Simulated scan of single mutants.
Amino acid sequence: MLWLLAHDSLARLGGGGVSHEVNRLYFRWYGVLSHGSYPVDDRMWQYPPGAGPVLLSPALLPGLTYFQAFVALTLVADGAIAIALARAGTRPRDGRHPQARTLHGALLWVAALPLLLHIPLARYDVQVTAFAVISLLTSARSTRACGAFAALGALVKVWPALALLGTPRGRTTREAWTSAAVTAAALLVALATLFSNPFDFLRQQGGRGVQIESLGGTALAFARHAGWQGAVRYRYGAMEFVGPYVSTVAAVSLALTLAAFALLLLWRVRARRWTPATPYDAALAAVLLFTVTSRVISPQYMVWLLGLSAVCLTSRHTTQRPVAALVVAATAVSSVAYPVLYGEVMACTWTGCLLMFVRNGLLASAAVLAFARLWRSGRAPAAGRPDGEE
């Protein structure tokens, strides 16, 4: 991955586009943040306040350039995830389940992350994923730590809050969610004190359109071959479709996201059985559902799904093994779509359309399967069958 990043200027590796995010965009934001303010009226800045400290963190390594320090810290986060998964896979959960753990999760993370080529090293999604992974893996030992790490991740990129969806009802949920709320409030107060304009990002979110790599974007790409008169433009830091019916597709995506949220709430209300892996399975299913219904599916989103899939595979109680396989397959196709053949995707050629159809089809299948298996696992166990047994 480091070798690929060093040769990022090669056409098949993105022609410098992958490292551009850190070299230009992150570094520009670093300059603004280092003067005590979040970016203002910047359409590209669409991240919660917690992203600020992450983008400032390369200052901790003053002997390196910003790019070198950013990559080094990303590798540290990558290593932290691998170690956490390995420890979770070798430490028995309790005396009742001495064989409940497995190293498959650590193996998936180490083996599958390079399928994204050098993209993970030039985005801060590995750092965000570290918060979610550690939150889930600490849930069995410290509910307060689980909530705190989920809150820290949520203030960087929102989605780690979903790590709390599957916490068992009662005291565990109250402690985890209270810890998350207190941690988030404390950090927001600190950031609002240290920086000006911490909530300006909210003004930029509403203008997002339909990214060409999303499910809705795939539908519009095929529509171009049927005569639809839309076009692809660079907007809000991504390649998006503009033209007739784009707003309708965006509205449908939002409606599907709301429907996914309703389904997850229904599962939580009706679930009657929790296994040691239920919090892991619920987090993966939730992030998959919100990913596939989003107007934006950037390639780095696969880092999140790999991390959560790896957490699921640390437990033999998980129901998500086939889902993890689909996520790995989607990851491999995703790196072909970007950066290798991104020109085909932007031009909406048949090759580009089919690539996105396969990648998004795998993700949609994974989302449906993940929720279906999560739903079934939440039913009361059959008479005579031990709890937690599939």
Rank of each mutant, 00 (worst) to 15 (best):
A310M: 03
L313C: 08
L162M: 14
A130W: 14
G209A: 12
H225M: 12
I297G: 13
G52N: 06
V311F: 01
R385Q: 11
A106N: 11
A383V: 09
V71D: 00
Y38K: 12
L107R: 06
G36W: 08
R144G: 09
S253C: 15
A150R: 01
A383K: 11
R171E: 15
L258Y: 06
V156M: 00
V126N: 02
S315K: 05
G307C: 06
P120G: 06
H225P: 11
V22P: 00
A367C: 04
F70H: 09
R321F: 11
P53I: 10
W267A: 01
R316K: 12
A383E: 13
A250K: 14
T318S: 11
R208T: 10
I212V: 15
L266D: 06
P62L: 11
G170E: 12
W267G: 01
L265E: 07
S37I: 03
M302W: 01
T167F: 00
T248K: 05
P244D: 14
L117R: 14
A260H: 08
P92K: 11
V156R: 00
P381F: 09
Q46A: 15
V287I: 08
A329Y: 08
P53Y: 08
R316S: 10
A231G: 07
L103M: 11
A180T: 14
G170P: 07
A383H: 10
L305W: 08
Y30N: 14
G14F: 02
A250H: 09
Y234V: 02
P386C: 08
R144T: 04
L10G: 07
